[in-house]
Computed example of a mutant assay.
Amino acid sequence: MTYITAGPSNGGPIRTGVVGYGLAGKVFHCPFIEASPEFSLDFIATNDPERRRQASRDYPRAAIVADANELLKHAADLDLVVLASPPGAHLEQGSAFLDQGVGVVVDKPFAASVAEAEELISKAEEVQRPLAVFQNRRWDGDFLTVKKILAAGELGEVYQFESSFEHWAPKTESRWQDVTPAALGGGVAYDLGSHLIDQALVLFGPVSAVRADLRTVREGGGNDDASYIELTHESGVRSRLWMSRVGAQPGPRFRVLGTAGAYVSYGLDGQEPALAAGILPTDERYGTEPAETWGTLGVSAPGYPAPSKVPTERGNYPAFYRGVAAAVQGTGPVPVEPHEALEVVKILERIHSEPQQP
């Protein structure tokens, strides 16, 4: 998908506003925008009093406004807006900024429905402005390692891909992920499953069949919180994906099985906790993983050498915003095409609307 852009209208850094200062805005977006000389962080929109104070302390040069509507009044002073808001708001907010000639980054889940995702894509094509979806876990270090191993053919013919994203949050909270119904993009399948499905599609391509088990385990849960999705790819590979908020002892992050061996890794990529701890993307430690967390490659069977440790590739979330800068400046494509993110939404909508197989 190609959009015609003229670059930042002021000839300088890409003037950027961020909608939302929860986990996504605070940890996954603002640090990269602030750290890159190609961007200026000019506005942060949040109506939560404590988050407003925190944003002002963290980014004193940014103007803090109440919400997306107030930020829209400053559209003439923006080249890009980042929607770190709940998925049910993405269509309305994204369309409004695109109509004002502002490029848009949308956090995942891309949209609450296929129809909303398609409408937002059509709007971006109509006004010829960049629209990118923040599927940041394409740049997880362990995922980059899997890609490297597959490209080298070290597993032979891959027939099964297992991936899990589980954490321990046994009580529901007031976050949109816990209280928003699936019809508006809430639940663990839309939240964490968006990452896992996207990674599977990147590795193994389109799917021919989908099966899922969506469960609500926690008392008072407003949506699914412990779910399983199985994808049969046209390539023949089967992806088995687990996502949970009640994973007291998580399983392997990745387990990739092939005819010549397997790769297994544990633990989530370290970029999120590093950012939450205040480690900036410019820090030399950023994106690196200690040897004790590396995955293993090989065969665990008599007569074979023990599986060997494989150094984890350096995590690289900054690559997403380098791609966004190129798209806004008109020198390259967006780093995650919205049509690719649309395929994820199609699968999520399908598993929520069709009767599920046991």
Results as ranks from 00 to 15, higher is better:
Gly220Ile: 08
Ala226Val: 05
Thr216Arg: 14
Pro206Ile: 03
Asp178Glu: 06
Leu196Val: 09
Gly221Cys: 06
Ala182Glu: 07
Val210Ile: 15
Ser235Gly: 09
His195Lys: 07
Gln177Gly: 03
Arg238Glu: 13
Gly221Gln: 06
Thr180Ala: 15
Ser244His: 06
Met243Gly: 00
Gln199Leu: 14
Ala189Asn: 04
Ala212Glu: 02
Gly236Leu: 08
Gly222Tyr: 11
Val179Tyr: 03
Thr180His: 09
Gly185Val: 07
Glu234Phe: 01
Leu231Asp: 00
Arg218Gly: 03
His233Lys: 05
Leu192Thr: 07
Val237Asn: 10
Ala262Phe: 01
Gln199Lys: 15
Thr216Glu: 04
His195Trp: 08
Leu196Gln: 11
Glu219Thr: 11
Val256Trp: 04
Gly261Pro: 00
Arg218Trp: 05
Glu230Phe: 05
Gly247Pro: 02
Ile229Met: 02
Ser208Asp: 14
Pro250Phe: 00
Asp178Tyr: 13
Gly220Thr: 09
Gly193His: 10
Ala260Ser: 11
Ala209Met: 07
Met243Leu: 12
Tyr228Ile: 04
Glu219Ile: 11
Asp178Lys: 14
Ser235Met: 06
Asp191His: 15
Tyr190Leu: 07
Val179Ala: 09
Arg245Glu: 09
Gly193Met: 13
Tyr190Ala: 13
Val207Asp: 01
Ala226Pro: 00
Gly251Ala: 14
Ala260Cys: 02
Leu196Thr: 15
Leu203Ser: 05
Trp242Thr: 09
Ser239Phe: 09
Ser244Cys: 06
Leu196Ile: 05
Val207Cys: 07
Val217Trp: 09
Thr259Gln: 02
Met243Trp: 00
Leu192Glu: 09
Gln249Met: 10
Trp242Pro: 00
His195Tyr: 12
Ile197Phe: 07
Val179Thr: 15
Phe204Pro: 10
Val246Thr: 14
Ala212Asp: 05
Ala248Lys: 10
Leu231Cys: 02
Gly187Cys: 04
Gly261Ile: 11
Asp191Ile: 12
Glu230Lys: 14
Glu219Tyr: 11
Val202Met: 08
Gly247Met: 04
Gly185Tyr: 08
Val202Leu: 12
Glu219Arg: 13
Ala209Asn: 13
Gly247Glu: 01
Ile197Leu: 15
Glu219Asn: 06
Gly193Val: 04
Pro250Asp: 02
Gly222Leu: 11
Leu192Lys: 14
Leu241Asn: 01
Leu196Lys: 05
Arg240Glu: 13
Ala262Glu: 15
Gly247Asp: 01
Ser244Asp: 00
Gly261Glu: 10
Gly222Met: 10
Gln249Tyr: 03
Glu234Met: 03
Val202Ala: 10
Ile229Glu: 01
Gln249Thr: 11
Leu184Asp: 14
Ala212Val: 04
Phe204Gly: 08
Leu196Cys: 07
